[in-house]
Deep mutational scan, measured.
Amino acid sequence: MKVIFLKDVKGKGKKGEIKNVADGYARNFLFKQGLAIEATPANLKELE
């Protein structure tokens, strides 16, 4: 799953980066902790 990092995550990505991560990792950790959001077309447009 592609995500947009909202904060730096050690060993995974830095704020503003778009990366592929495991679905479970994204849903169970990154999204719940507010560290990333899903890289949907709408979210990508907001990032620009």
Rank of each mutant, 00 (worst) to 15 (best):
N20F: 15
I37K: 08
E17Y: 02
K7T: 11
P41F: 10
E46Y: 13
L44P: 03
G16Q: 02
N43F: 09
A26W: 10
V21S: 02
L47D: 05
N28F: 09
E38H: 07
K15W: 03
D8L: 03
L47I: 11
E38D: 04
Q33H: 15
G13Y: 12
A22P: 15
Q33L: 15
P41E: 14
E48M: 14
A26T: 09
V21I: 09
V9H: 03
E17T: 06
K2P: 08
G11T: 05
E17R: 02
A22N: 14
I18F: 04
D23Y: 13
L6M: 07
N43G: 06
V3E: 00
T40Q: 04
F31P: 04
K19S: 07
L47R: 09
G11I: 02
I37D: 02
R27P: 05
G13L: 02
P41S: 10
I18L: 07
V3A: 01
G13V: 05
R27A: 08
E38K: 08
G16E: 01
N43S: 09
V9T: 02
I37A: 07
F5D: 00
E46R: 14
F31E: 07
G13N: 03
K2L: 15
V9K: 02
E17F: 02
L6Y: 01
K12D: 07
K15E: 07
G24D: 15
D23L: 13
F29V: 15
G16Y: 08
G24E: 15
L47N: 07
F5H: 01
K32G: 09
L6A: 02
E48Q: 14
A42N: 12
P41T: 09
V9M: 04
A26S: 05
G11Y: 07
N20Q: 13
G34I: 02
K10L: 13
L6P: 01
F5Q: 00
I4W: 02
L44H: 05
L30H: 01
G13D: 02
G16K: 02
F5V: 00
K10S: 10
N20K: 10
E38Y: 04
Q33T: 10
D23P: 15
E48T: 14
N20H: 14
G34Q: 07
A26R: 02
I37T: 07
N20A: 11
G24N: 14
K2Q: 11
N43T: 12
K19W: 07
A26I: 10
K14W: 08
E38N: 04
E46K: 15
K32Y: 08
K45W: 09
E46T: 12
V21Q: 02
K45A: 13
A39Q: 02
N43H: 10
K2A: 11
L47A: 08
A36Y: 01
K15Q: 09
L35W: 09
Y25G: 05
K15G: 03
V21P: 00
E46S: 14
I4T: 01
E48L: 14
K15H: 06
R27L: 14
K19I: 10
N20L: 15
L6N: 01
G16S: 03
Q33P: 01
I4E: 02
L35F: 10
I18Q: 05
K10H: 13
I4K: 04
M1P: 04
M1F: 07
P41M: 10
L44I: 13
Q33N: 15
E48N: 12
G13F: 14
G24R: 12
Q33F: 15
K19P: 01
K7I: 11
A42I: 10
K14Q: 10
A36P: 00
P41I: 12
E48K: 13
N43Y: 08
P41V: 12
G16N: 07
A26F: 13
K15T: 08
K12R: 13
I18R: 02
I4D: 00
Y25M: 06
Q33W: 15
Y25I: 07
A26V: 09
E17D: 13
G34Y: 07
I4S: 01
N20R: 14
F29A: 08
E38R: 08
E38W: 06
K32R: 10
E17W: 04
D8R: 04
V9E: 01
N20G: 07
E48A: 14
K32A: 15
A42S: 11
D8I: 02
N43E: 06
I37F: 04
I4M: 07
V9R: 01
A22R: 12
K10E: 15
G13Q: 03
N20S: 14
N43K: 10
L6W: 02
D8N: 09
K45F: 12
V9Y: 03
I4A: 02
L30V: 00
Y25H: 07
K15F: 06
K10I: 13
P41N: 11
D23E: 15
A42F: 07
G16W: 09
K10T: 11
D23I: 15
V9I: 08
N28T: 08
F31W: 02
K14M: 12
K14T: 09
A42K: 11
N20V: 15
L47H: 11
A39S: 04
A36M: 01
T40A: 04
K2N: 11
V21T: 02
F29E: 14
A22W: 10
V21D: 01
L47M: 11
K7D: 08
N28G: 10
R27D: 06
K32M: 12
Q33E: 13
I37G: 01
K7M: 11
K12E: 11
N28R: 10
F29H: 13
G11A: 05
K7A: 13
E17V: 03
E46Q: 14
K19L: 11
I37L: 09
F31S: 03
K19F: 06
V3H: 00
A26P: 01
D8E: 08
A39P: 02
V3N: 00
A26D: 09
F29Y: 15
A26N: 04
N20I: 15
K2H: 09
K7G: 05
D23S: 14
L47W: 15
K12V: 15
L44T: 08
K7Q: 13
A26G: 05
K15A: 13
D8Q: 04
G24S: 14
K12F: 15
K2D: 10
F5N: 00
V3R: 00
Q33V: 08
E17P: 00
I37W: 05
F5A: 00
K12N: 08
K12S: 14
K45P: 05
Q33D: 07
K10N: 10
R27S: 07
F29N: 09
N43L: 12
V3L: 03
L6G: 01
G34D: 06
L6R: 03
D23R: 13
K12G: 14
L35A: 04
N28V: 05
F5T: 00
